[in-house]
Write a protein that binds this DNA or RNA. Sequence first.
DNA 1: ACTATTAATCGTAATATTGCAATATAACAA
DNA 2: TTGTTATATTGCAATATTACGATTAATAGT
Lengths: 109, 109
Amino acid sequence: MGLTKTEIFTKEQNKIATMAKVIAHPARVAILQHLLKVNECICGDLVEVIGLSQPTISQHLREMKQIDLISGNIDGTKVCYCINKKTYNQMRDMFSKVFGKDPKGKDCC
Amino acid sequence: MGLTKTEIFTKEQNKIATMAKVIAHPARVAILQHLLKVNECICGDLVEVIGLSQPTISQHLREMKQIDLISGNIDGTKVCYCINKKTYNQMRDMFSKVFGKDPKGKDCC
DNA sequence: ACTATTAATCGTAATATTGCAATATAACAA
DNA sequence: TTGTTATATTGCAATATTACGATTAATAGT
């Protein structure tokens, strides 16, 4: 198969999974970290900093754009990318909801 | 290809990606949420609660075990699963490190 | 010993992901 | 308009993921 059965899960579960998937690749983690550091940059910068080909970086950027984690503004021949604060904060809330609990009990059974 | 070039990324970037990948599927999110709620349960419970086949659930559990998010203790014919607090907390720290920043600046460029 | 219960593993089909070369597109500069 | 720069898209090969039926293994109860 290779196809996730999204219909049997809640909206929240699917959303969390989708958000997690976007940072489930080191290149996309690196892109996010770089954007946090420099605030904004163009695709070419990331190609240099990260060391993957331009088409590959472009593809990763598209995936991050698809869930609105970043947005790109055309500036001449360049495209200026930056973090979309709203989604970024939404992701923080989601992850802290999942990982903010205190799992009680001894470590197992 | 289909093969991630892990060697060009930092240990931290790869670690974050690996942790994120584990919750990048709604079934594994559901397993984590259920374990947070009931503290401990067996594989069969999850098959019922989630609605995927036993082999599929077993496979998801294995992935979560591989990064030590959960551990399973044999108890007769059953296996009792629960959250591994240490890794769970480690994941919280990791995600809050990535999403705990305050991205300044207007929304883009 | 026999049977039921529970979970892991194997094998396999369908689909998704990763990465890049080649190409296309778009804007600027001379 | 021609060349240059920057990014996106397409097509493809290699690998990974998801899901499940069939089987196996291990224990418990009778």
